[in-house]
Amino acid sequence: MARRGGAQAGIPMIEELKRKLAKEAEQLQHELNVTLPNEIRTAVEHGDLKENSEYKAALERQSFVQARLGHLHARLSKLSSVDPAQIPEDRVGLGSIVVVQDEKGGPPETYSLMFGDAVEFQEGHVSMGSAIGRALLGKAVGEVAILKLPATTRRLKVVELTTIHQQ
């Protein structure tokens, strides 16, 4: 297949995910800087902090929001460093649509490799960090991915591949 769109082809998926994460970070930042301080101030006004459940709940929420913000900022930083030019054009990678055939038979299966926190997971979407995602990553058409599951091991032959560059 001819390459269409060059290194910029994968950008929309990455940009959409960055927008989603940035929006969540902005909402949490507002909660951390405006909403929670007001809740804490109101709870403090109720008096005895040792038995003040509203105060404890607000502090717990504040800790959670700070941790989530840290995670979001780390993900945004990592996404900013993704270079679509580094994603292989002839092997399974981020954004690839892969059709596999189980060597034991059955209908072909189609998977789309996504980030773990993709905007919307749909039927056939798999995280690159999932068992199937890790098994398929780096495979080319004709190669076999070995998927080790708790009850069995599957051998999936890559029969068709559309990379992020070809979409």
Rank of each mutant, 00 (worst) to 15 (best):
A2V: 15
R3M: 09
R3I: 15
R3P: 05
G5T: 12
G6S: 09
A7S: 15
A7E: 15
Q8L: 05
Q8S: 08
Q8R: 10
A9W: 12
A9P: 14
I11Q: 08
P12K: 13
P12T: 15
I14K: 11
E16G: 12
K18A: 08
E26S: 10
E26T: 15
Q27F: 14
Q27W: 12
L28M: 04
Q29G: 05
H30E: 06
E31R: 05
L32V: 08
L36A: 00
P37I: 14
N38M: 09
N38D: 12
E39K: 08
I40N: 02
I40E: 01
R41C: 01
L49A: 12
K50H: 14
E51D: 13
L59F: 01
L59K: 02
E60M: 13
R61L: 06
Q62D: 04
S63V: 14
V65N: 11
Q66C: 00
G70I: 03
G70T: 03
R75H: 12
L76M: 14
S80I: 09
S80Y: 06
V82Q: 06
D83L: 08
P88K: 10
D90R: 05
R91G: 01
V92M: 00
G93A: 04
L94A: 08
G95S: 02
S96T: 06
I97W: 03
V99S: 01
V100I: 13
V100H: 06
Q101D: 11
D102V: 08
E103F: 14
E103T: 15
K104I: 13
G106Y: 13
Y111A: 04
F115K: 09
E120L: 05
E120A: 05
F121V: 07
H125V: 06
V126N: 00
M128Q: 03
R134N: 09
R134T: 15
L137P: 07
L137N: 11
E143G: 01
V144F: 01
I146Q: 01
I146N: 00
L147Q: 04
L149E: 02
P150L: 03
A151R: 09
T152D: 05
R155K: 05
V158L: 05
V158R: 09
V159D: 02
E160M: 06
E160A: 11
E160D: 11
T162F: 03
T162H: 05
H165A: 01
Q166V: 07
